[in-house]
Simulated assay, not measured.
Amino acid sequence: MGGCEGRPLRFTYRQTFRRRETGLLFVCFQREPDTFVRTQHRLDEADALTDFVTPTASATFLVLPGFDATRPLGSTLTG
């Protein structure tokens, strides 16, 4: 990931629904989901803003590494 190995790549988007309802969409790309889980646990213990937010959904997706003529899709997952 271009010089930031082990560090998550994060994006935040503000959403507005029906004029009054707003929300925040948080997207994070990283190699190790465990890093995200540990970060969330630390935020839960120490972040004062936690009292003002209500998570409504969560999802984790696996995105396979790229491929070329010598490397089939997903080949790096098995070694």
Rank of each mutant, 00 (worst) to 15 (best):
G2E: 00
G3I: 01
G6V: 00
P8K: 00
P8N: 02
L9N: 01
R10T: 08
F11M: 02
F11D: 02
T12R: 02
T12S: 06
Y13L: 04
R14D: 05
R14W: 05
R14A: 11
R14N: 07
Q15W: 05
Q15N: 01
Q15E: 10
Q15L: 14
T16V: 11
T16H: 01
T16L: 01
T16W: 02
F17E: 12
R18D: 07
R18S: 09
R18P: 03
R19T: 12
R20Q: 11
R20F: 08
E21C: 01
G23A: 05
L24V: 12
F26T: 05
F26N: 06
V27E: 03
V27T: 02
V27A: 03
C28K: 01
C28L: 04
C28M: 02
C28V: 08
C28R: 03
F29E: 00
Q30C: 04
Q30N: 07
P33N: 03
P33T: 04
T35Q: 00
T35R: 05
F36N: 02
F36P: 01
V37D: 08
V37F: 07
R38A: 15
R38C: 04
T39I: 07
Q40A: 10
Q40P: 02
H41I: 13
L43N: 04
D44P: 02
D44F: 10
D44S: 14
E45G: 07
A46C: 05
D47H: 15
D47S: 15
D47P: 11
A48Q: 11
A48T: 14
L49R: 13
T50E: 07
D51K: 10
D51C: 04
D51Q: 09
F52M: 06
F52H: 13
V53N: 03
V53P: 04
T54C: 08
T54I: 08
P55C: 08
P55Y: 08
T56V: 14
T60P: 00
T60A: 11
F61D: 07
F61T: 12
F61V: 14
V63G: 06
V63D: 06
V63F: 03
V63E: 10
L64R: 12
L64T: 15
P65R: 07
P65A: 08
G66S: 15
G66P: 15
F67M: 12
A69C: 06
A69K: 11
T70M: 10
R71D: 09
R71M: 12
P72G: 10
L73P: 15
L73Y: 13
S75I: 13
L77G: 14
T78R: 13
G79E: 13
